[in-house]
Amino acid sequence: MSIIETAGLWLLHRMDPERAHGLSIRALRLGLVPLPGPVTSPRLATTIAGLDLPNPLGLAAGYDKNAEVVGPLTRAGFGFVEVGAATPRPQPGNPRPRLFRLPEDRGVINRFGFNNDGAEAIASRLSRARRDVPVGINLGANKDSDDRAADYLQVLRVCGPHVDFATVNVSSPNTERLRDLQGREALSALLAGVTAARDDLARPIPIFLKIAPDLTPAEIEDVAEVALSSRIDGIIATNTTLARDGLRSAHAGEKGGLSGAPLFERSTRVLARLSAMTRGRLPLIGVGGVGSAEEALQKILAGASAVQLYSALVWNGLSLVPRILHDLDAMLERDGIANISELVGQDRARWMKGD
């Protein structure tokens, strides 16, 4: 991390978290952040659901909610970028304050509630954005919607022509009863509708499903069975958690979804269990607590074909992205691994035991 980035983070951490987030978006838009371009090597390049990625490290949804800085983010070193969540109509989200740093835990709690400019505005920005790596949209539903399943289809129809993949987000804890859509019958119907809408696009794209880390083993099995019987292309595991185990920071009791380092073990165990249940028939993307090359590698060993991060950027800045990738590439070279895909799921059994 450079002196300038260190100083910048120091200043941002002394501001209200949501204001600091907005300033980071503005700095990217103004070209004030050094960008390395896509980072790749023969060991890092991979393919997931037909998407050719220069490396397996992506940006999770939630940072660029409104697709304001897609171009810069695709030149920040990531192998792929996900924006959103987008809802059919603009909505302000939950009242402020709704974003909290947990410095002692290296975590973040948010209760944004799908605040965004709406699908039409986001699609317009996506249509104009230069991109150097695949870009996806996280699909959401309006809080006051009478038919949330229809909302997902509407966002896909509007934004789908301008992205390379889409994610069905039924796992945010900040929209009341949204997680009910993870139940077997509701999820099956929703995914059938989304994949049918995808087929109507001029250029059909992969569809991923993003699940919560707080599911029981039986619920994970239901998700796996529904996913395998549907026509989706992969699963993202996991979203934020409602658990608060072992936290020390002052804001630990705030309502909302917890992300960052405290989520790593919980989300990786869910990932491993899901990997075993899907038996390699669906690619998985691991997200939750990734902040180093070793943690990215552990997600892959647990069963992920690619990984995502977001919260770690709060503490380490965008320079973390190329640093993780260069370290990961060096680890693969040291161990004589020709391509990272060789390691997918190799340590799944240990993670399922919780060792």
Rank of each mutant, 00 (worst) to 15 (best):
G345T: 02
S311H: 04
S230Y: 12
A60V: 01
S341K: 14
P36Y: 11
D222T: 06
V69T: 15
A306P: 07
P262G: 13
G257H: 05
G58S: 12
G289W: 06
A149T: 07
A227V: 07
G257Y: 02
S145H: 11
Q154W: 04
E225N: 13
A338F: 04
G291K: 00
N169T: 01
A20L: 13
K210H: 02
H13I: 07
F80M: 14
A227F: 12
P88S: 14
P17E: 03
A330E: 11
D164F: 03
K210S: 10
E219S: 00
S41P: 10
A250H: 08
S292E: 07
N142A: 10
E104I: 05
R128M: 13
A123C: 06
G62Q: 07
Y63R: 11
L23G: 05
N116H: 06
A7P: 01
W10D: 05
A349T: 09
A250V: 10
G140D: 01
G336H: 05
S127A: 14
I109S: 14
N174Y: 04
G140Y: 01
L258T: 05
D222R: 12
M15T: 09
P103K: 02
L332W: 12
N316S: 14
G31H: 14
R279N: 05
D64K: 15
S229A: 15
D347G: 11
L343Y: 15
E219W: 12
D151V: 02
D52M: 07
A304V: 06
K299T: 00
R350C: 02
H326L: 06
L126E: 03
S2K: 10
D327V: 00
N94L: 09
G118Y: 07
A302C: 13
